[in-house]
Design a protein around this nucleic acid. Structure first.
Lengths: 257, 257
DNA sequence: CTATGTGAACCCATTCACAGCT
DNA sequence: AGCTGTGAATGGGTTCACATAG
């Protein structure tokens, strides 16, 4: 085979940093929009703005993929769309199953962003017998009993879990046993999986909690780094009563042993 | 203290690393589960396993909050729940509005994880007049015309956008103008906001794309780092015809200028 | 002269390993 | 003796700034 690169610092051509991989879909989305407007080329500056990152980062990211730009000009939109799609594995069709067809599962089934990016919803699966046969997003829901059969006969390797937290681990194990090796988990629980299986999680309330943290801080920092908001007096008292080094606050009822 | 830097040193006692903040909700979830089982104390090892991180990271994270453990023993569960809740700003009640009551918006409105963590859905807002008055998750949907009034009269500072991409920026601007300073964006588009406004985004299809990348790589690495899958022959030809340095692959139809 | 591609510096995050407290 | 808390070491990711190509 014609690979000239036999021994290399090894962390090269194939080793794209995880942080870069996570941004490729962002670039792809921005490029797709440009493509639909028939824009032929973009500069790193313009594309970075459209994707919400800075241009140095974008150029560095692209440098891991190869030299796909033209100096003095920019990047060819169509060409980049293809290269990034290929890098992400979106030039092939990925059948996915969604397990747990509640509100969220139904929303996912109806979500247009999947189909338009190389993902095909192969089946919707739910444990409730009353759901079986009901059409959601034009697909008849199937019962959990069918899970293994569906995975195997469709060659599904990506599963989406949108069940309640209590059911998630068990569903996960059945998916993995049937051959799934990538899981997107919406249930608010930690999944344990064997080596070789990838799990990504999306927890809706975690994102809100992170926002609340920053929101609280905005309100508290208005007059100096040590103004603790409504509980300043209580804090001062607690600092005397309790020798723990926490920067702020006491506790209403329960104290540690 | 100052190093002639234009921005602030940022590493102060109040400056909890962003990566740590992002994990606090995870710890909180694990601790809440322990609390419900009336477990009085946990070691960093046990709690780390329950949260899906390693124990050194967890101890380091907690060290930014203060010394809340007891050497030789572990952490008091109730005490930690309170300290983390307070740090995240969850001891107060955050009214949030959800804009865009489609499948996803409805799923969010019904999501139990919000209410149980100090968030209160103050209003559901949709642009479709036919939706107005309809109850979703026990709350009557209100029309977009009411947006400013709802934000102001409820003192809402956190907004959730679950509209189609095309409407998101406009909704965002109205939310910000009315006083919202934190936004959780589910629309697949980049939002532009003034300084001082926080945006976090959740893009369902991005997570799947990242999984696809790793999934593809699993399949491709089975027989050597340069086995390119189905397109190997095409690649070799392209390598001759095209002097770009991309590590692999050609393009079906379009070529750059 | 313009905009990419990239070494090098910088900064943040993770991991290690052990001192210090209970 | 056991487990936390944390300096020190390590590793990744981001940013800078400029050589390089068109």
């Amino acid at each position: 085979m014609a690979t000239g690169r036999t021994h290399r610092p090894a962390t090269r051509s194939r080793g794209i940093p995880e942080a870069t991989v996570a941004r490729l879909p962002l670039y792809l989305r921005a490029l797709t929009a440009l493509s639909e407007r028939s824009v032929p080329t973009v500069s790193s500056e313009e594309l970075a703005a459209a994707a919400g990152v800075n241009s140095a980062k974008l150029r560095k990211d692209f440098s891991y993929l190869g030299s796909y730009g033209t100096r003095g000009v920019g990047y060819d939109v169509e060409y980049l769309v293809y290269q990034i799609s290929r890098e992400l594995g979106l030039t092939q069709d990925w059948p996915v199953v969604i397990v747990g067809i509640g509100n969220l599962g139904a929303a996912l089934a109806n979500y247009g962003g999947f189909a338009s990016r190389g993902f095909r919803v192969a089946a919707l699966i739910d444990a409730d017998p009353a759901m079986a046969g009901k059409p959601v997003a034009g697909i008849a829901v199937q019962h959990t009993d069918e899970l293994e059969h569906i995975i195997e006969s469709n060659g599904v390797s990506i599963g989406v879990i949108a069940t309640p937290a209590g059911a998630a681990q068990q569903v996960c194990e059945r998916l993995v046993a049937a051959g799934v090796t990538s899981i997107l988990n919406f249930a608010p629980t930690v999944l344990t999986v064997p080596d070789g299986v990838d799990v990504r999680k999306v927890d809706l309330s975690i994102e809100l909690q992170i926002l609340a943290f920053h929101e609280q801080r905005k309100a508290g920092e208005e007059d100096g780094p040590d103004s603790g908001g409504p509980a300043v007096a209580a804090r001062a008292a607690a600092a005397v009563a309790d020798d723990r080094k926490g920067p702020d606050g006491d506790m209403p009822a329960v104290m540690p042993a």
